[in-house]
């Protein structure tokens, strides 16, 4: 943690920041050396589609182009060859959200599981963990309105349920790099009010992480975790599963904060652990499927705390996910 010089910045105006006097402003050129690309969702022409971009925004390509379907929440496989993603179809209470898979170039689209969402990959790429929509009566866009924890086996194509059948109201799954745990935020489930937990991937136990907020994500080496303390700030901390809780309050550091009226949402660590990508914009409905006009994808340099937009069109750009391999 000491190697990281984390600056706690107050960002008075979206897209601007107060930098120490000896730091120059960040430019896109500073990201040109990042070889990893980013996949994200964007709403254009009446529906969400997936896009892939270079970190310096010099190159971008549309991966899906469907009408009356919303492709969202992309998660790239550890080998960088596949994307698991959500597809919403239908409208209003008849809407549904299914889990799909395709190649990194957008071809070979395949349905994996109906009424399934909030997915993540196992570190070896064999499994995709996901949760299922809870209500059979009507669609709920609420992230937490889920039931169970399930695994799609990439080798057999079979879906199996987690050993603990009492898991409920989980969202934002993230598999630890050592393969042992899956973290999630839970609301109103398993006796919790609202907290973040780690679940044994192949056991039945779960426990609290010791953090407050939503959507924890592991650093690539599994030694740190980052999350949204609120809609306006991100935190990171060391994580050590040999202790309970695995996050100590003294290790928690703020890395970004925006002023009221603006929000930041769902960070993702770059494969080299030097950057985080996230989405940001004015107060909106930024959860999956929600409309967030004015939102863009941003990259933050962890060593300096400097950050910059890499999209500017404000087309509800959200859920960035780094491509692990070039």
């Amino acid at each position: 943690m000491k190697k990281l010089l984390i600056l706690f910045l107050i960002l008075p105006v979206f897209g601007r920041m107060q930098l120490p006097a000896d730091q120059k402003a960040l430019t896109l050129a500073d990201f040109s050396s990042i070889s990893h690309k980013i996949v994200y969702e964007s709403f254009r022409n009446g529906s969400y589609d997936l896009y892939i971009t270079s970190a310096d925004a010099s190159w971008r390509r549309q991966l899906t182009d469907t009408k009356n379907m919303h492709e969202m929440y992309p998660k790239v496989s550890p080998d960088g060859k596949l994307i698991a993603f959500s597809v919403d179809t239908g409208e209003g209470r008849a809407r549904r959200r299914d889990l799909y898979l395709m190649k990194i170039d957008g071809s070979g689209r395949k349905l994996l599981s109906r009424d399934s969402r909030e997915h993540c990959w196992s570190p070896d790429g064999r499994y995709i963990a996901f949760v299922k929509s809870e209500s059979a009566r009507r669609f709920s866009g609420e992230s937490w309105a889920t039931k169970g924890l399930f695994f799609y086996d990439m080798q057999s194509g079979q879906v199996t349920e987690h050993a603990n059948k009492k898991l409920e109201h989980l969202y934002n799954l993230c598999w630890s790099p050592d393969g042992k745990y899956i973290t999630a935020t839970v609301l109103g489930g398993m006796g919790f009010r609202h907290t973040d937990i780690a679940i044994e991937a192949w056991g039945t136990k779960y426990f609290q992480l010791g953090i407050v907020g939503c959507r924890p994500e592991f650093s690539p080496d599994g030694k740190k975790i980052g999350w949204g303390q609120s809609d306006r700030d991100f935190r990171i901390a060391k994580i050590d599963f040999s202790r309970r809780p695995p996050v100590s309050q003294k290790d928690i550091v703020g890395i970004i904060q925006v002023t009221k009226g603006y929000e930041v949402y769902h960070l993702d660590w770059s494969p080299d652990g030097r950057y985080i990508a996230f989405s940001c914009g004015p107060d909106g409905e930024q959860a999956v499927g929600g409309m967030a006009p004015g939102w863009n994808i941003c990259i933050l340099e962890l060593s300096t705390g400097r950050w910059l937009n890499i999209t500017w069109d404000g087309n509800h750009n959200k859920e960035p996910d780094w491509v692990p391999l070039n």
């Binding site: 209500s135 009566r137 009507r138 709920s140 609420e142 889920t146 109103g188 006796g191 919790f192």
Partner: peptide, 19 residues
């Protein structure tokens, strides 16, 4: 009864829904 997701912290059939 309406098959809606129950977000409540304090679970109980006769308790009010909250959260």
């Amino acid at each position: 009864m309406l098959d809606l997701s129950n977000p409540s912290h304090f679970k109980g059939e006769k308790k009010p829904v909250e959260q």
